[in-house]
């Protein structure tokens, strides 16, 4: 997803680039045709969600990424230990991914074999494990560094 201009394209990979572009867009067009032709895919809703994804990436993600990093740096200073950055990032991903499990949306299906666990407890246990694991890894690395140096 890098979009840095490749100055050597005309010389090195021009043929490959254009072949890939033509082939790729042919496949994209085929996929879109299937999407439009399938009434069950509800193409309008699918493309709308995809557009939301693009906006989320290009407008929201970039702004949040830069703004969030600036705020965290301002609040904590530049020397945030790596393990804290990792644990924060990983915790955010776990919560964002499994928010539906936390809320128990699947329970509405009324099937006892779906979502058999206490997912709030699971997520909390996982978050604790992430922070403890991160701290332990940092401690081990620190000790190794001290013994080496």
């Amino acid at each position: 997803m890098s979009d840095q201009p490749n100055a050597d394209r005309e010389r090195d990979d021009g043929a490959l680039f254009w072949t890939g572009t033509v082939l790729g867009w042919a496949i994209i067009a085929f996929g879109l045709k299937l999407l439009f032709d399938d009434p069950e895919a509800s193409w309008f809703n699918t493309l709308r969600l995809t557009a939301i994804g693009i906006v989320a990436h290009d407008i929201v993600w970039l702004a949040v990424s830069v703004g969030g990093t600036w705020l965290v740096m301002r609040a904590l200073g530049r020397d945030i230990p790596h393990w804290i950055r990792w644990a924060t990032w990983t915790s955010a991903i776990v919560i964002a991914m499994w928010f539906p499990l936390w809320r128990g949306y699947g329970d509405r299906i009324r099937n006892d074999t779906i979502l058999p666990r206490d997912y709030r407890a699971s997520i909390i246990i996982l978050l604790i494990a992430i922070w403890l694991g991160g701290a332990a890894a940092a401690l081990v690395a620190r000790r190794r560094q001290l013994s080496d140096g």
Partner: peptide, 16 residues
Amino acid sequence: KMAIVVMGALVAHVCA
């Protein structure tokens, strides 16, 4: 169906 679209875009991106 969207998987086909993504794979097409991936082909273009990989070649680029």
